[in-house]
């Protein structure tokens, strides 16, 4: 193994790859190993009596996927110009979920030590699903804690 390769290896272990997504105006990053696929959700079936964060269910290649409206989940207003939304496919506890987001961006490789803790004054609702903040050139990337996003039942009842 050449010295260069070893260097690269060392570098690799110290970085994380994120799939970046845009929800509202905010840039979020999802750890790439948690992302199954990115798809354009078609015909979402609403589920009556379900929590407001749940946009519904859809058929993704024969699997029933529960779609979470991330704007609602993060208490953001509805998108004004409703362009074609995108969804990120996630597997959680053996079930398929789709996170409804506005746009998918590039995949970023970021150093692990660049990750900073949530600022103390971050919206409580956001802090709960945020795994920290990465500083990019001129903008911030909030790292989404996917498990927390999907762990909705255990949260204090805020949906009223």
């Amino acid at each position: 193994m050449s010295a260069e390769e070893m260097k690269e290896e060392a570098q690799e272990s110290a970085t994380v790859e994120y799939v970046t997504v845009l929800i509202g105006e905010q840039l979020f990053g999802l750890p790439i190993n948690r992302v199954q696929d990115v798809f354009m959700p078609e015909t979402i079936t609403q589920v009556p009596l379900s929590p407001p964060e749940i946009a519904g269910v859809l058929n993704l290649r024969g699997r029933i996927v529960t779609v979470i409206d991330m704007r609602r989940r993060l208490r953001l207003p509805r998108a004004e110009d409703a362009g074609q939304p995108m969804a990120v496919g996630i597997e959680y506890k053996g079930e398929s979920y789709g996170l409804l987001i506005d746009q998918v961006g590039e995949v970023l490789r970021l150093p692990v030590d660049g990750l900073e803790k949530n600022p103390g004054n971050l919206d409580r609702r956001w802090a709960m699903v945020s795994g920290g903040v990465q500083r990019l050139d001129g903008r911030l990337l909030v790292v989404l804690d996917v498990d927390q996003v999907l762990e909705m039942g255990s949260e204090p009842a805020v949906a009223a």
Binding site: V47, P48, L49, P51, I54, T66, E95, Y97, L150
Partner: peptide, 15 residues
């Protein structure tokens, strides 16, 4: 899905 299982009106879903 587990998230929706507490809705007693439905026993499941289908395609």
């Amino acid at each position: 899905s587990t998230m929706l299982r507490n809705i007693t009106m439905f026993s499941g879903n289908t395609i």
